[in-house]
Amino acid sequence: MTSSVLVLVGSLRSGSTNRQIAHTALELAPEGLELRLYDGLADIPFYNEDIDVEGSVPAAATAFREAVAAADAVLVITPEHNGTIPAVLKNAIDWSSRPFGSSPISAKPVAVVGAAFGQYGGVWSHDEARKALGIAGANVLDDIRMSVPGSMTRFVDVHPREDVEVTTQLRAVLADLQRVLSAPADSSEDAAA
């Protein structure tokens, strides 16, 4: 059985390291794990409850919600902007968190990884993204982590796919994600036992 994973990149820059890591993840995806890169985050307007009403929801927001709903899991690959989560990613989380009580991100397994220029590889951003996703109702996979430091110097002449440490970590992230998705769901009878 194949599981589908929607990949969100927290950087809009076409040559960003995190976008390169996302493409590398697509190349490294094991059999049975289908990754799909979502390229429409820049098209989604800032979240505004005034336009989030039936008949007025922007088409880009609807398309995004449908993509999240259709995926079995979400993999967020993001840098750090000024010590925190990029605005485009926060906006995506806000749109995916509504409608309250039946949002597409609700209970959806989500992992957050990425790279940043700083010495900690975007840990602050990754932690903030996990926090926001958890509050939005996602099933945040806290144990799946990868934070690559020094991205602006480390990848000047090397693509992340050529970095053995990065590809090894990325393979582990994908294997862990696949393991979560293939684990049998607890039945209410098992939980009661």
Rank of each mutant, 00 (worst) to 15 (best):
P149L: 08
G10Q: 10
H159S: 09
K90A: 13
D186M: 15
N91V: 12
E31Q: 14
D52G: 10
E31R: 14
A115C: 03
G15M: 04
P45V: 13
L6N: 06
H23G: 09
N139V: 02
S102H: 04
A107K: 14
D176T: 01
I144P: 02
S182Q: 09
T78G: 04
P30N: 05
E165M: 14
A25W: 06
L89C: 06
G55P: 09
G15N: 13
K108T: 11
Q20K: 15
V5H: 04
D72F: 11
D186Q: 12
S56K: 15
A73G: 06
I21A: 00
H126M: 11
D143S: 11
V148M: 13
I93S: 04
G150A: 14
G10L: 08
L75I: 06
A136N: 04
E34L: 03
I21G: 00
G150T: 01
A67W: 05
R145C: 09
D50M: 06
V57E: 13
A107P: 02
V57I: 15
E189R: 12
V166S: 03
L8F: 05
L12C: 03
K131E: 14
V140K: 07
F46K: 00
D190E: 15
R19W: 06
V53Q: 15
L141I: 05
A136M: 03
V173N: 12
V173P: 07
L177K: 07
L6T: 02
A183R: 15
V88Q: 05
S187C: 10
D127H: 11
D190F: 12
A115W: 08
Q178I: 03
A42Y: 12
I77C: 09
V166A: 00
A193L: 07
E49L: 08
P160H: 07
E66Y: 02
L28T: 03
L35W: 09
R161W: 01
